[in-house]
Amino acid sequence: MKQGRLSPEFKVGILVLIGFIILFYMSIRIGKFGVLSDKGYDLMVYLDNANGLDTKSPVLIAGVEVGRIRSVKLDNFKALVRFSVKEGVQIPSDSIIAVRTQGVLGDKYLEILPGKEKKMLSSGEKMSNVLTSPSFDEIFTQVGTAAKKFGDTIEEFQGILGEKEKAGIKKSIDNIQTITGEFKDIIKDNKNSINSVIANADDTMKGLKKIVTDVESGKGSLGMLIKDEKLYNDAKDTMASLKSISSDIEQGKGSLGKLVKDDSLYNDAKDTVKNLKDITDGVKKGEGTLGKLAKDDSLYVETEKAMKKLQKGADGISEMTPITILGTIFGLMF
């Protein structure tokens, strides 16, 4: 078969070699050369809800994959999950195990939070400390609590004003001025982006239709947050109080007489009032609940705080993707 040309065997050999090199390379890159399933030991855990957990779902400690789920079976109305742990990874017997969610796809995995016990789990043992993740309902309850605290804070704010501590007021006004100025700028600067964000939010909402429906019908506690008239009224009251203080200042009468001498302070205050008026006008004109939220500056302060609390509250379940998205959207809007 030597005719100066390459023999079929040679050409086929090259092609097969290329195939094997690619296969080998891809296997290496994927980095799961099947070694996980061979060595190591097995542990078990009973879960109330193994929804989303599947054979081969990963088991992580501190975000590092240490094993894979081998099987998920129903045992006595609980899910018996059997998983492998890599050789060399020791798990203290008081470790906590939790079902977590990862990524946009909402993949579930098991996370082991190592305990402090000296005794290590050995093959075939059951882990008993299960951290149950909060469900959606629980998250919304937390949001409700946050909204209540929001209202309390505004009342506290009013209390401060009643004390009439001049220095405090001056400082407050200063702060309010800077803050409102900034907010105005922010709103001005971001008008377009707010619009587009709202548009985007609309798109996203389509995907999250159920939640949106709930929010619109004021069913969930998040809906309450948005629709709560009291909240809005509180904010309006606050504005009114501020207004009366500023008008006192303007007239230069009463106990605030001293302050009048200070021109710059006066001017500052005037500007502040003007700003506040602008904003309150905006709020009054503001249509729809989102519009109100978007234009109401003082509400912003508290909403931001509430959001922070909300995010903090949701921290333990920070992987709950839809909420994260919602948070992102609200964060962008304010």
Partner: peptide, 16 residues
């Protein structure tokens, strides 16, 4: 074998 290799060349290498 030589027939198989000829076909492998035809099916595999020439379709690559």
């Amino acid at each position: 074998l030589n027939y198989i290799f000829k076909q492998m060349e035809f099916i595999g290498v020439k379709s690559a």
